[in-house]
Amino acid sequence: MNKRILMVVTNGQSMSNGHLAGIWLSEFTEPYEELTSKGYEITIVSPNGGESQIDPNSLAGEGIPSKWQNLADLLKETSPIDSVKASDFAGIFLPGGHGAMFDLPNNEHLHKLLRDFAESDKSIGAVCHGPAGLVGAKLSNGEPLVAGKTITAFTDAEEYEVKLEKEMPFLLESKLRELGATLVVRSNWEDHVETDGKLITGQNPQSSISVAKEFLKTLD
């Protein structure tokens, strides 16, 4: 049985307000812990390779929790996404953080990976802004990967609550609906996961553990 999982993280970038849009730490560490606890080996890649910058807002002003320091260190030197191929992995997982909105939607190699995973009936997981990576992905027939799929993602209401709607290149919930996905959303910050076949999505940081657990079920 293939016990390798590919995890795709953002490199992060500054927003026009001067703040860093990076990876949301718990959306990386909590799924990482869930997956490795079941014996899976994680390969971490990013669009450019190198550092995946951590969103300071995900640290609650207290710095990296000591329990996650070793995992945070893994984000300092990721492999470039074009160095991997889907056939080597059992599934792919996309953590969120606002940085994912900038460098995942237009990454052609990520699109190819996602198409290969989907058309090989392999598991695809994404949480919060991670589904931004699904935005540009298309199947071989040209249809959006998310078309006709029941999913969830960081909601427009949540984006407005954190007052970053004007900093984003698009609103994720609205964009996924435009692509033909059926978006199911819950109250802001509610733990919420949707599973459609082997496509598993979570709404927000509060959903990170739940989406990882559901993702694991599709790997068995």
Rank of each mutant, 00 (worst) to 15 (best):
M1P: 15
K3V: 00
I5L: 14
M7T: 12
V9P: 10
G18W: 05
H19A: 12
L20E: 08
L20R: 07
A21K: 09
G22Y: 03
L25V: 09
S26H: 13
E30W: 06
Y32D: 05
E33Q: 08
E34T: 13
T36I: 11
K38T: 09
I42E: 04
I42K: 04
N48P: 05
N48L: 13
N48W: 11
D55E: 11
D55K: 12
S66F: 02
Q69E: 15
A72D: 08
E77P: 02
S79G: 01
S79D: 06
P80S: 08
P80C: 01
S83I: 04
A90Q: 15
L94W: 12
A100F: 06
A100K: 03
M101A: 14
D103P: 12
P105R: 00
L114Q: 00
R115A: 10
R115T: 02
D116A: 07
F117S: 02
E119R: 03
E119S: 05
D121W: 03
A126Y: 01
H129V: 01
P131L: 02
G133L: 12
L134T: 03
L134H: 05
G136T: 03
A137R: 08
A137L: 04
L139S: 02
E143R: 15
A147H: 03
A153E: 03
F154C: 11
T155L: 11
T155R: 11
A157N: 10
E167H: 12
P169C: 10
F170Q: 09
L171K: 07
E173M: 08
E178Y: 08
G180Y: 13
T182N: 12
L183R: 02
L183H: 00
V184H: 11
R186H: 11
N188R: 15
L199K: 14
G202N: 13
G202F: 01
S210W: 12
K213E: 15
F215S: 12
T218D: 04
T218M: 05
D220H: 10
